[in-house]
Design a protein around this nucleic acid. Structure first.
Lengths: 120, 120
DNA sequence: CACTCAATTGCACTATTTTGCAAATGTGAT
DNA sequence: ATCACATTTGCAAAATAGTGCAATTGAGTG
């Protein structure tokens, strides 16, 4: 039960849902500072939520130099797949501000990767 | 965001997941006392969780004399549908004790409805 | 109306979770 | 080694959620 409950609990927080949505929509790995700018939430808060999502097995982490990128795991089981599909089925307008901010932020990438820090 | 988050939060509690599983598997309305016996959890705890599930719009309530029956809503939107399908995708063995107890309890029905109280 | 029983509720208590800040870590550059 | 900067972490405070019991409601019955 524990792993299932852990994933479910993870989805019970607005910030984590917003993070998952960004990753679901953008379909690529995102740098912590890009997520911070897209959601306009303090780094340490984002960082802690990312940790929980990772512990729950919903996202994975790759470091590239100074930057740390997170990406969705690809759901290997029906349970996780249904969960992610639920997140994706939340109407998009709720997230339009976040998406706009992310889009703007992603334009600042160079060679397809993050090169600037926070407060961009 | 609120209604979506409310449903998601609802799924972050083990007791509520067990209640939903019973309703999903049995595919019929269940009396509070039947749920109590199936899960072996105090009535007042069950009652409070049922209330939350109802407030979240996941189940509905019908009184019939002394007894109150709860049943799953039929998901009208993709979001809710995905959520319920996630619950259904949790491996069944975790719930086998509950299912066995429920089955035993349902045998005590008369004319297809609950006629006895708690601690059956 | 009084009694019984199913179910809910109010309140206090105890987790569990979230947040905020300051300090620490890790990495690249000078 | 020092500095700058992205990110994480530890710890205390604040907010939220869950539990247990006693009291209450609501419905049926004598």
């Amino acid at each position: 039960m524990k792993p299932y409950l852990q994933k479910l609990k993870c989805l019970g927080d607005e910030t984590r849902i917003r993070i998952l949505r960004l990753l679901l929509i953008s379909l690529e790995e995102l740098c912590v500072c890009e997520i911070v700018d897209a959601l306009d939430i303090p780094v340490y808060t984002i960082s802690k939520h990312l940790k929980e999502l990772k512990n729950a097995g919903l996202i994975s982490e790759q470091r590239d130099g100074k930057f740390i990128f997170y990406s969705l795991i690809n759901a290997e089981d029906n349970f996780t797949e249904s969960l992610l599909s639920a997140v994706l089925n939340i109407p998009g307008n709720i997230f339009s501000d976040n998406n706009d901010a992310l889009e703007k932020r992603l334009k600042l990438r160079e060679n397809g990767t993050c090169v600037i820090g926070m407060k961009g």
